[in-house]
């Protein structure tokens, strides 16, 4: 009897954490995606170019360096899924969506710093993983950092 109770506790608690992480984590992800979609509609008008050369048809009034960054972490359930995936190999979809959120958020934050820009040139994206020491106590998080040069054309010549 005692063995059963201890088994339930040993299996039950991690399972409970996974279920809570699944429910809360996916709710947070949906909310984040809604916010990203909404803001992308608002700032979608600013074109991004990842070249140094830019269309020089209009005279430029102002050039400004802009950055945007976000640190985003996996939830417990995603890590569990990824752990299963590591056995069989293949695409880890749960992490793909996480990095997608991070990149879009970083680009949006960069755009939000220059809402009046006409163009952002030489956009670069950097990703680095942040982990807290120890192999057991892993803190799974990634930082996405976006930067570029925002250009504003001389008014009235657009």
């Amino acid at each position: 009897m005692e063995a059963i109770i201890s088994l339930v506790i040993q299996l039950g608690i991690p399972l409970l954490i996974i279920v809570v992480a699944l429910i809360v984590g996916s709710a947070l992800e949906r909310r984040h995606y809604r916010s990203i979609d909404e803001r992308e509609r608002r700032y979608g008008g600013i074109p991004l170019i990842n070249e140094k050369k830019y269309p020089t048809l209009q005279p430029v009034a102002e050039a400004r360096f802009v950055t945007g960054s976000v640190v985003i972490s996996y939830d417990y359930f995603k890590r569990f899924l990824a752990g299963l995936r590591m056995i069989f190999g293949g695409e880890v979809k749960s992490y793909v969506s996480l990095l997608d959120r991070g990149r879009r958020e970083a680009i949006l934050r960069m755009k939000e710093k220059c809402p009046d820009a006409d163009l952002i040139v030489n956009v670069r994206l950097e990703t680095s993983s942040i982990s807290k020491g120890g192999s057991k106590q892993r803190l799974g998080a990634v930082e996405v950092f976006a930067y570029g040069t925002a250009l504003r054309y001389v008014a009235g010549e657009r």
Binding site: A21, V24, L28, Y74, D75, L139
Partner: peptide, 16 residues
């Protein structure tokens, strides 16, 4: 704080 937030995922504002 980050370890707690890490359970459910999402942005770690402190680190940002």
């Amino acid at each position: 704080m980050a370890s707690l937030k890490n359970l459910v995922g999402g942005e770690l504002k402190g680190y940002t």
